[in-house]
């Protein structure tokens, strides 16, 4: 390819990005080299700093370069509310579209016994210690409504119950603007099981 080792390596490396195949990797590489070397240098620097410095928050486990992330160290947040989610992207989603003022606990996945992902990988011991400290008054389960997400929620709620912490579950069901007849059985039975008084 193109007689350049460095370009070949750049194209190969770009392919680690999700959604990037050989064609688009090649387009990106030539674009940066031909038209945007400054952008490329900034990208390289940002990438290498993030890869070196971003770890996990010691309280909520989300991705952060601080020992305690900005959200956990923000004294405006209500520390008596703890919302359990699967991924840092879920934190972003909730922050962007809800008025939630509590804090989070990020499992960084869900229970997946066949992949060897169990309580240790999900940091449930850390969560248990957090609940034992009596700071948390309500635990909000916001794991995904998949079979594994539900099983994860079940075990988290067992831990909360053992610590005497009230547990709630975000509602799952019919999407806004959705029509019942087009919704799949799993979603519909979830929505039905979670019906509320009006």
């Amino acid at each position: 390819m193109s007689g350049s080792r460095l370009i070949g390596r750049l194209i190969e490396s770009l392919r680690c990005l999700p959604g990037v195949g050989p064609k688009s990797a090649q387009r990106m590489a030539f674009h940066l080299l031909e038209y945007n070397r400054d952008g490329g240098r900034q990208l390289a620097e940002a990438l290498s700093m993030a890869m070196e410095q971003v770890g996990n928050c010691s309280e909520c486990r989300t991705l952060s370069e601080q020992t305690i992330c900005l959200l956990c160290s923000n004294d405006q947040r209500d520390r008596s509310l703890l919302c359990v989610v699967e991924t840092p992207a879920d934190v972003q989603a909730l922050e962007q579209s809800t008025g939630y003022r509590g804090v989070y606990f990020v499992l960084m996945g869900h229970l997946s016994p066949l992949d060897g992902i169990g309580p240790e990988a999900l940091g449930l011991d850390l969560l248990e210690a957090r609940l034992a400290s009596a700071e948390v008054k309500e635990l909000i389960l916001a794991t995904n409504p998949t079979v594994e997400g539900e099983a994860t929620a079940h075990f988290v709620s067992e831990i909360a119950r053992a610590q005497g912490v009230r547990t709630t579950r975000i509602a799952h069901g019919v999407p806004m603007g959705g029509e019942l007849e087009y919704i799949d059985g799993g979603t519909l039975s979830h929505a039905f099981a979670g019906r509320q008084e009006v």
Binding site: P113, L114, G116, G118, P119, E128, E158, I159, A162
Partner: peptide, 17 residues
């Protein structure tokens, strides 16, 4: 692997309900 995950759950829940 499922046995290992069950083992971890049991050690986590030694004083659980």
């Amino acid at each position: 692997r499922t046995r290992e995950v069950l083992r971890q759950l049991s050690s986590l829940s030694r004083n659980a309900p």
